[in-house]
Design a protein around this nucleic acid. Sequence first.
DNA 1: TAATTGACGATTGTCGACAATCGTCAATTC
DNA 2: GAATTGACGATTGTCGACAATCGTCAATTA
Lengths: 223, 223
Amino acid sequence: MIAIIKRSFDVQAADVLRQQILSAAIPAGSRLTEVRLAGELGLSRATVRTALHQLVNEGLVVQVPYTGWEVATLTAHDAWELFTLRSSLEALAAGLAAQRAGTLDLDALDRAFEDLQTVCRRRNRAAIADADFALHEAIVKLAGHGRLRAQYRIVEQQIRMCIASSNALIGGGQSIIDEHRPMVEAIRAGDAESAARFARDHNAEASDLLVTHLKRLEEQTAD
Amino acid sequence: MIAIIKRSFDVQAADVLRQQILSAAIPAGSRLTEVRLAGELGLSRATVRTALHQLVNEGLVVQVPYTGWEVATLTAHDAWELFTLRSSLEALAAGLAAQRAGTLDLDALDRAFEDLQTVCRRRNRAAIADADFALHEAIVKLAGHGRLRAQYRIVEQQIRMCIASSNALIGGGQSIIDEHRPMVEAIRAGDAESAARFARDHNAEASDLLVTHLKRLEEQTAD
DNA sequence: TAATTGACGATTGTCGACAATCGTCAATTC
DNA sequence: GAATTGACGATTGTCGACAATCGTCAATTA
């Protein structure tokens, strides 16, 4: 028997809006009005409000009280914040996972790394981003740390939003594998310090490139 | 002329409830009903609902959809999560602040550390916790990282809640000063790596003690 | 006697209506 | 012409009412 999954309307509305924002179907900076969204979603305005509040907490929407809601526009500074935070969280996750490596089933880690290698060989950029995220998700899950997991997801969502809205080119191929292998091996070996260090540093170059790219976009827009 | 600060009722309600939860005036595990709170706060139930949603996002309240709301009960595992996360965020803040030390006014850091030393000499436990938090807040502010700041506050709130609800004894005196001095000096010196390392490690012993204490409490309750 | 069913009160989820606020624009004043 | 004022439509904030859900308890069944 298939369980009926109950999901209240405000949660469902937040899901739909989140998806539209993350895919850039609703562009960054867009005005969101409760009345219009309520009409489109077929819900009461109050329900939509609750959904919007949730998205504000995830950093995807900005509320100006008494005035309105809009999709967050992420600046180069935002990107820097997100990357530094992500790096720190990934380091924590890798270190904790490595500490527990001796007592855990590492199949999920191995599978995720295999998947990453597979898509890197195919040079499918969207799939690379997904597999990269999935690898880190697997590690965060191994850390057994719910708050870390929740926060990591929120940060990663916003990073995806950055990438989607800037049309940034994300590297692929062998370098992605090479960046991740030492971290995965340190986790397997139970070496928490190295795992944390590799996790912290593994994305530094790509992150800097994206931040620089966003700064250039901002300068062009200011002209 | 004093500006009128507009603060919508749902935000004000969240403020009031947060304060009551953090001070343990409403104990952990307490059932919160919208009807009763609305009556007590003199607001509509929908407004209270919005406030409760916000507190859920801060980890202070747990919602069981269709069933109810209650003040979060933080377990030893929760405490472990909070301490590891806090440690990681403090390390990030200290490292970033140290990177910027050459271009910043470090007065706030110095003052906060002085204040900490002052209250440690007086052995006033509540004031020590406040001054400890204020020192880290000052560092987080120096890091110029809004998301880090917001997340740090949420984590720190929950830690206060842990401490308040467990009646744990928090150490004081010279050891607190000794734990913080190397981090503060590394920040002043612009040594990001040391600042991050000292920040990450400086609370390990106290954190472990509290987690162990909570585990013991849980075992007693299970008897 | 234990398990199942049904009723009911309490509470949550959602709705639409009223009140408050804001931004815009035209009219007025200096 | 620039600054100020006032009106108005659009939108947000809050409200109370209706509908849906849950937990509890008594009644019924096996």
